[in-house]
Design a binder for these strands. Structure first.
Lengths: 136, 136
DNA sequence: GCTTTGAATAAGACTTGCCTTATATAAGGA
DNA sequence: TCCTTATATAAGGCAAGTCTTATTCAAAGC
């Protein structure tokens, strides 16, 4: 199962959010999930299995308990895939770094700087921009 | 359809990669995809529809042609969701920025600095670290 | 006007994923 | 030992997604 398929399920996304806060037992995860989604314990267990088998989590036993920990490797893959699109909403993050994209776009509307996507169809009539690749 | 569901399909991911390079006609996308996946024209068209209806692309007509352009908004949502996990593989990106996580992890193994995930089960016996949240 | 090209839609088969109930397995405690 | 708790697995039903072929619709070109 591909990382994106795994993340396609809202229950699994929620589980990962929980695990992002720290290691949790299967029981704790199940309890939290069941409050939000009203599904059975086996259903949660099956989601945990998917996460396990696709590498999003690792498990260790402590008595009868199973302690789930996040393993970020697949999430990182997703992040890597996303990288090629980031230029569409982020101006290149140079030395300084973290200016809000929202602010940047607003500024672009004044000075006309090309920063990536979100150009409306109309804009094309105004220039010879045929290709639209990010991070130019 | 949720953004992650849309990205769950490899054909759609490929289409987005193509569109990331610039606007493409439906025909151009179809040709490229059919070389890689061996599916029919309607199949590609249906994927384009999904991308359209879920906001990943916008279309404009030029004669009989349909020109597809990427709309990064949903990708950005995905990126935002991923943000909470980024601390697991990135040391906080301060002023300087882009040190490879690989290098950082290696260093951590020496000085014991807490930087996020990927701590092995054994490590737990060495300290009172009960919670494991990124970006601490 | 007719035919061809570009692209979308329709209908139906097939597959896959998710959930449920029932059950298994193993640890903990009386 | 027996019962309970913690968790996982099994089997089957149902829903949703993706593919295919057939068809529609609109623009282009002769």
């Amino acid at each position: 199962m591909h990382a994106f398929d795994v993340l396609g399920d809202p229950v699994r996304r929620r589980i990962l959010e929980l695990l992002a806060e720290g290691e949790r037992t299967s029981g704790a995860v199940t309890a939290a999930i069941r409050e939000e989604f009203a599904i059975s314990q086996p259903a949660v267990s099956q989601h945990l299995r998917v996460l396990r088998e696709s590498g999003f989590t690792t498990v260790r036993a402590e008595g009868a308990r199973r302690l789930y920990t996040i393993d970020a490797a697949p999430l990182r893959e997703v992040d890597v895939w996303l990288e090629r699109f980031r230029g569409f909403w982020e101006q290149r993050l140079d030395a300084l770094g973290t200016e809000l994209a929202r602010g940047k776009r607003a500024r672009r509307l004044h000075d006309g700087t090309q920063g990536g996507g979100n150009r409306s169809a109309k804009d094309r009539t105004a220039g010879r921009a045929k290709e639209e690749t990010p991070g130019g």
